[in-house]
Structure formats: C-alpha cells, structure tokens
Design a protein around this nucleic acid. Structure first.
Length: 140
DNA sequence: TCAAAGATACCGT
DNA sequence: ACGGTATCTTTGA
C-alpha cells in the first residue's frame, strides 16, 4: 500500500504484481510511503491536467461492474452524465448503477465521479467533498 | 434462497 | 414540494 499526495487529499492505493487493485480516497494526512509506479505517474499527470494511458487494473468482481467500467471510460474528461442516462445505455436501472458505483474499488482512475443525479450532485462513497473538488477541477 | 439496502427517477397529489 | 412506487444488483443471513 502506497500513498499519493493529491491537491484534494491523500490517495492510498494498492499496487502489487504489476497491477492496481484498489484506490482509497482519504482526507487525513499521508500515512504510507510514496512510490514511483504507473499509478502515481498517472495520478500526477491527471492532477496536472494531462492524460496518460491507464495502468493495469485489477479485473472487476462481477460481470455487471465490468460493463459499468466500460460505460464509465466512455465519459470524456470534463463531461458529466446522470445515473439515469447511463443506466439506459447499459440497459439497467439507475438504482443499480449507484449501487455498483459505490462498490467500485478504483475511483478517479475509473471516473465514477463524472456521474451525477438528475437534479442533484448525487452521492459519493468517499465523501462529497472529493466529488465536488474533482468535478470543479475538471470543469476547467 | 430470500430479504434488504443502495451514490435514483418519475408520477401523483 | 412531498411521498409513494418502480426498478436492478449485491450482499448477508
């Protein structure tokens, strides 16, 4: 487990065997060592407003979450979709999407913050502060 | 197996 | 504006 210092808080991530298994968004201080690997490089680029090819990511647990991941990757930087719209594209229900997004172990890299509710921001597993900060950041 | 809980949406009043 | 209902996937008992 390593830590990455982002402008909005610390991001802990699990990197071993050449792939990324999980990301955890913290609000606390750094509690693990920094490390130079594809994940930290990707995050550095992201917060600098650039884009890099995705690191190798652990495969999702369920089939549905796999489909969801594809749907999410289709959302461009700075673009936003609602749970409802995305649900229609994946032939599922909005509620199911929310459930799956919350279970997503790879926030930010899989842009689960680019999905908002119809008339609202929606929710965010690691706290709305992160979602707001990320959306605000991407809006520029 | 079944019941319950989600980061929802929509329609009626 | 508020409340109830529709809807789908996961997870725990």
């Amino acid at each position: 487990m390593y830590s990455f210092q982002s402008p909005f808080g610390v991001i802990d991530y699990d990197w071993h065997e050449g792939m990324c298994h999980q990301l955890t968004l913290q609000q606390s201080l750094m509690n693990h060592a920094q490390h130079d690997d594809p994940v930290s490089r990707w995050l550095t680029a992201y917060f600098a407003g650039k884009s890099l090819p995705l690191p190798v990511l652990a495969s999702s647990k369920t089939d549905f979450q796999g489909k969801l991941r594809c749907g999410l990757c289709a959302i461009q930087y700075g673009e936003v979709k609602t749970y409802g719209t995305l649900a229609k594209e994946l032939n599922t229900a909005p509620r199911a999407l929310g459930q799956a997004l919350g279970a997503n172990p790879l926030p930010i890299i899989i842009p689960c913050h680019r999905v908002v509710a119809a008339n609202d921001l929606g929710g965010f597993h690691y706290g709305l502060a992160w979602k707001k900060a990320l959306l605000d950041f991407e809006a520029r």
